[in-house]
């Protein structure tokens, strides 16, 4: 049996001495889509950012392996080279750097790190255009500075565009659906679904069933106060929609 793509064992994480994650266990195999749900402040973004190696967090104990390798020993760019992609809950602006240039730089940084030839503008453009069409994005956005002056929805769509171009192994999407109108949600979901495949795993952090109507997950996990309190199939998300998190918290204290 080959090892799982991502394996998290008993992960404890704190920020400024506040314990945020209190023992996470999670296994994600290639080809799977997992959804993580949970109330505000429960630690979903913390988990996403720790896995993509933001260094503001302190790992107190536990481990996270990517293809059997120690993910927590990697720098952010090393995790990225190893195939981890984070679609940010709050995408960041980079003034003066065009979206297209930024993406090509990213693609080539990845290729270089993996020992591949850099892509020329001529090779990059057709691929890039295709992904733009997939996400029904305006070419004009590509000559604008990264995320600068983008609407909330445009920023989120831009994150998924980046994922489509970078073709990660493990994509973690942090509330990509929030701030999207109904049409945009459909387009973004289409983009994400196009990325599903046997080589790739996707972890979707969301508050709403709405997104999961389009992207049907294989597993749903409920994160409450730094712990995964329940895991199940897609039906768990629907159950949550009706009962809220209250009953879940009760079930942890009972456990």
């Amino acid at each position: 049996m080959k090892s799982p793509l991502l394996e998290i064992r008993n992960l404890h994480v704190s920020v400024d001495r506040h314990q945020i994650l209190k023992g996470i266990d999670l296994q994600v195999n290639a080809g799977e889509v997992h959804s993580i749900m949970g109330p505000n402040g429960s630690g979903k973004s913390t988990l996403a950012q720790v896995l993509s190696r933001r260094d503001a967090y302190e790992v107190n104990s536990g481990e996270a392996l990517l293809n059997g390798e120690d993910l927590l020993a990697m720098k952010p760019e090393e995790a990225a080279w190893a195939g981890v992609f984070l679609a940010f809950q709050y995408p960041v602006e980079v003034p003066g750097i065009s979206n297209a240039y930024f993406l090509r730089t990213a693609v080539n940084a990845m290729r270089k790190a993996r020992g591949l030839e850099e892509m020329s503008a001529m090779e990059f453009l057709p691929m890039f255009r295709e992904k733009l069409r997939l996400l029904e994005m305006d070419d004009k956005l590509m000559n604008r500075s990264v995320n600068e002056g983008f609407s909330g929805g445009e920023k989120k769509r831009n994150e998924i565009l980046q994922m489509a171009v970078l073709e990660p192994k493990l994509a973690i999407l942090d509330e990509t659906d929030s701030g999207l109108d109904i049409d945009a949600l459909r387009v973004v979901a289409k983009g994400i679904n196009a990325m599903r495949g046997p080589e790739r795993a996707i972890v979707v952090v969301t508050h709403y069933q709405r997104l999961l109507d389009y992207i049907v997950p294989d597993f749903v996990h409920v994160l409450v106060d730094g712990r995964i309190v329940r895991s199940g199939g897609p039906e768990l998300a629907r159950e949550l929609e009706e009962t809220g998190y209250g009953s879940m918290e009760a079930s942890t204290s009972a456990a």
């Binding site: 993509s52 952010p76 760019e77 990225a80 990213a106 990845m110």
Partner: peptide, 14 residues
């Protein structure tokens, strides 16, 4: 830190 993390998450070295 936000900007740095964003760029590095996309594979661009520090």
């Amino acid at each position: 830190e936000d900007q740095m993390f964003y760029l590095r998450q996309r594979g661009i070295k520090g």
